[in-house]
Amino acid sequence: MTTVTEATGGAPVRTVRPRGGIGRSVRDSLVVAQRNLIRMLRIPEVVIFGLIQPIMFVVLFTYVFGGSINVPGAPVGDAQAYHEFLMAGIFAQTVTFATAGAGAGIADDMHKGLIDRFRSLPMSRGAVLTGRTLADLVQTALTLVVLAVVALLIGWRTHENLAEVLAGFALLLLLGYAFSWIGALIGLTVRTPEAATSGGLIWLFPLTFISNAFVPVNGMPAFLQHVAEWNPFSATVAAARLLFGNTIAGVPRSVTGAWPMEHPVVASVIWSVLIIVVFRTLAVRKYRSATA
């Protein structure tokens, strides 16, 4: 935490215990996260709508596209193979929706003057944003659990041990957390919750569709294959697919030979951490000078 201003003594306020550094940062972030989680409980519509869309996608993609899309290495028209192929993609797309939530939340706080209040308090500079992204992480985890149950009910199966499956979900959550930092930056930049929601969603469609999430990359034009396989989003999809055991033996991992597809787990971690570092730095810097 380079952003915390060291708070040392000298304050004339009796009731305040001076604190500084990481301890204060963690504590403040948790206070803000708690606040955002309470809000989520009080506005459950948001969580519920957040669930409906991915469930709809799973059902629609599975039953509408399932018989028509050929997963490489699987028999033609094998709907179960596509269902297994699809789930990692749907999970990954779902976690990226945290972008819109974080963005809208932060923009709303700006709009209502809450960011000014927070900025006038002796709290850690990154805590408002970290608290928000942590709360979104909890919501994303909840969504994944419900989605996984629905997917299992309609026939999705994993074929690896529990540890690997959980590792797959951990990578998905890490991606979601990374994307919520992109959302935080958008929220601080656009100033209205409506703009943050659309600004947080529009680019997600090309990003998630030009990837290996919904269809096998080998059906795309050559240049799109390169884009798709280097897409950070694809790395996590490939990693989750691998860790869930939803790949078909003997099929090469990559069409273009892209490094992230050959090493999806490592690539997924690298991409997500990189996004967090870059966007957290930018967002916290923006927050410090935020003008409502």
Partner: peptide, 21 residues
Amino acid sequence: PDEVRRSIGLSGQFAAVDEYL
């Protein structure tokens, strides 16, 4: 600035309270 923040209270033009809390 951080020390100043511990010694001031600010009440702005907009009632800056969380409406769902």
